[in-house]
Amino acid sequence: MKIQIILKGIFKENPIFVLMLGMCPTLATTSSAINGFSMGLATTFVLVLSNLTVSLIAKQIPDKVRIPSYVVIIATFVTVIDLLMAGYLPDIHATLGIFIPLIVVNCIVLARAESFAAKNGASNSIVDGLGSGLGFTLALSLLGFARELLGEYAIFGTKLIETDGMVLFILAPGAFIALAYLTVLFNMIKKRLIK
């Protein structure tokens, strides 16, 4: 049961390749695998904690102020991770920059709180947050890996060939193009597996 929830977040309802949610950080922070991975983990942190909190207090919140309350909860955890990263992971904090506070408006987080956590128990909500977070992290890492490989000829910051790569992939247009082909790839694999 729990494993199924996780797998659903990673594969069947992958936030990026299937639902196309949270595209801004996806495109902006994936110029290298490690950046994409860190952004994914920061989002997962917020997803798990906000899902947990929402599932615990959903019954106490009047219906009409539901969304504002969720937004406050999410913004709180976003600020917590923002402050923690500024203090203990300053380099990554500097590269991700403005996209850490922008986790607040990442549709995935609010969507999971509203559509899953508000209706389910605490433990399932944590697992759901973890699943969606991992699906997001996986997609971001893959995209970062591909862009780094093509754009710098490097894997995790280690250069494979000592020349300039296809710089386009590090730049903005490359983000769109790489994501387009990764989505095609993801759909092809999914189709084959379903058959």
Partner: peptide, 21 residues
């Protein structure tokens, strides 16, 4: 066929971004 829908739109967005560069 494989590019229909979102992938094609993303590719177009990529070209547009290139033009803006």
């Amino acid at each position: 066929k494989a590019l229909k829908g979102m992938p094609a739109a993303l590719l177009v967005a990529g070209l547009l971004a290139m033009a803006f560069m």
